[in-house]
Design a protein around this nucleic acid. Structure first.
Length: 515
RNA sequence: GCGCCCGUAGCUUAGCUGGUAGAGCAGGGGACUCUUAAUCCCAAGGUCGAAGGUUCGAAUCCUUCCGGGCGCACCA
């Protein structure tokens, strides 16, 4: 886009001229003034600059009122605040999320350049050249010998003292939030480092990263409602994946023996403090091991990642300090239910009606049509998990909850599945993968019956996946970790929106643009 | 999807049981050559989220809608 065209002349660019607020027309006028003086308000480049943090580091040793010899440097950044003193001015500059003060006076710059500097607005991006000194008040400062405008800002920044609090504006205009609240940027950078660390950790273990389809003809690998879209050339509906699982298992069939994927999943469900319609999932599959090996991987990887991202394998969640270091205790779902509710799986299966009474006593909202599987699920989520603070593996789930997991050798009603619970939250889901095509077909058929009965989240029957299993999938353990929620746990935030750069909101209605 | 709460200037906000909006910052003009929430003086900026209703009179009370937040439900 040609930056020399003022925004109001672009199609759909700014608000209509008759509704233009004063602050914008004033700044547009300033741009015209600059152009008349042959100064480009949107510069091409500013070569040879040194990052502000590096300048601060290099000259940290300077004492009060001391000037650094040979400290000539070029720096650039956004003007965050301005303190005028007649024939001198202080500005606070920010590049990235680091601030540094600069100082200029009329003696050094001359009248014209100094007057232009005083006309700079908070929010403008400028470049300057000068030497480094420390003021009488002790602040490291660049003494400006020359400067230039790099980008003129048309919109005022949020208030410097109270900042930007309005959550809607913060999420809709994250670019402003990042400027006004640098801790938001730091948190989101930490989230990025978590993903990087996880990738490196798995690669070091010999896992290979792959990318499988996001557009899938059948949505599988999880129990959830999908988004539907349409491919015009193929004239067919496609689904945004709810999980990569079935494709990664096809890769096990194809010969990959340690494989993982980090990517977005999409589920067409409610939005909440812990749900965003698109979220980042890490899934891995490891051939020739069962869920015991996966548990070891998890209890070693999680503290290692926490160490890298937060600097400690101990994290704080509310009033609890949580020690993530291995080993983590392993408790069967049956024993957890028994300890917290006095119910055994066998009893719940045999007499769901009595089980419902017990759940009601714990003020859990149960409905008459709830199946045994749903009751177990509710009991775990509402009673058992909240009581688990330190990392704990909950293992051996009822087969009805897990259509893709392998049965326990001792009990055909249980599967070899586990979830890790930390601070009351599920942070992963894993199992010994079902590789018996006959058993898998029966489980799919059971799901199909659930679907007939009205369960919209029941798993669909995927014939191609069954065909792959018929070629033979090696025994394997599989793991899924919700990366956003792991980031929340590590960074101590309550809302998933605080670890997602652009969380989903209802689309904004822009009246000016639509008229 | 249901319940509760919120929406006043670009930002942060005051505005009592109804009497038609007040400030700080930012922005504009002026003073000030080491300040840092710089300071001081002046002026400007608001269809009080939108539309209806009650009333002599509505930012304030009622209804509906829009947007957001928080619970609950579904899910990771």
């Amino acid at each position: 886009m040609d930056p020399s065209v003022p925004s109001e002349e672009r199609d759909g660019g700014g608000p209509p001229a008759d509704r233009q607020p004063d602050w914008e027309s004033e700044r547009l006028a300033e741009i015209e003034r600059l152009r008349k003086e042959r100064i480009e308000p949107y510069a091409r480049s500013f070569p040879g600059r040194t990052p502000l943090a590096e300048i601060a580091r290099t000259y940290a040793h300077l004492t009060t009122d001391q000037k650094a010899e040979d400290s000539h440097c070029r720096a650039a950044g956004r003007v965050m605040s301005r303190r005028e003193h007649g024939k001198a001015v202080f500005l606070t500059l920010r590049d990235g999320w680091d601030d540094l003060q600069i100082y200029a006076n009329i003696d050094t710059l001359g009248e014209t350049s100094f007057a232009r500097l005083k006309a700079v607005n908070v929010g403008d991006i400028i470049g300057c050249e000068g030497h480094v000194f420390r003021t009488r008040r002790g602040e490291l400062t660049i003494f400006v010998e020359s400067w230039t405008i790099l980008t003129k800002s048309l919109r005022p920044l949020p208030e410097k003292w109270h900042g930007l609090h309005d959550r809607e504006t913060r999420y809709r205009q994250r670019y402003v939030d990042l400027i006004a609240n640098p801790e938001v940027a730091r948190r989101l950078l930490d989230r990025g480092r978590l993903v990087t660390s996880m990738r490196r950790y798995l690669e070091d273990l010999g896992f290979v990263e792959v990318e499988t389809p996001i557009l899938q003809p059948l949505p599988g690998g999880a129990l959830a409602r999908p988004f539907v879209t349409h491919h015009n050339a193929l004239d067919t509906d496609l689904y945004l994946r709810i999980a990569p699982e079935l494709y990664l298992k096809r890769l096990l069939v194809g010969g990959f023996d340690r494989v993982f994927e980090i990517g977005k999943n999409f589920r067409n469900e409610g939005i909440s403090l812990v749900h965003n319609p698109e979220f980042t999932m890490m899934e891995l599959y490891w051939a020739y091991v069962d869920y015991n090996a996966i548990m070891e991987l998890v209890e070693n990887m999680i503290p290692a990642l926490a160490q890298e991202v937060t600097g400690s394998a101990q994290i704080v969640a509310g009033e609890h300090t949580i020690d993530l270091r291995a080993p983590w205790p392993r408790r069967t779902v049956d024993s957890l239910l028994h300890a917290n509710l006095g119910l055994s799986l066998a009893a719940m299966r045999a007499d769901p009606r009595a089980a419902k009474e017990v759940l009601r006593e714990h003020r859990i909202d149960v409905e008459n049509r709830d199946t045994f599987a749903m009751l177990v699920d509710k009991a775990l989520k509402h009673v058992v998990w909240p009581a688990v603070v330190q990392p704990t593996f909950a293992i051996d789930y009822p087969v009805e909850l897990s259509p893709l997991a392998k049965c326990s050798p001792d009990d055909p009603l249980l599967v070899e599945r586990f979830q890790a619970i930390i601070a009351g939250r599920e942070i992963c889901n894993a199992f010994s993968e079902l590789n018996d095509p006959g058993d898998q077909r029966r489980r799919f058929e059971e799901q199909a019956r659930n679907k007939e009965a009205g369960d919209e989240e029941a798993h669909v029957l995927d014939e191609d996946f069954l065909r792959a299993l018929e070629y033979g999938m090696p025994p394997a353990g599989g793991l899924g970790i919700g990366v956003d929620r792991l980031a929340m746990l590590f960074l101590g935030v309550e809302s998933i929106r605080d670890v997602i750069l652009f969380p989903q909101l209802r689309p904004e209605r822009r009246q000016a643009a639509e008229d």
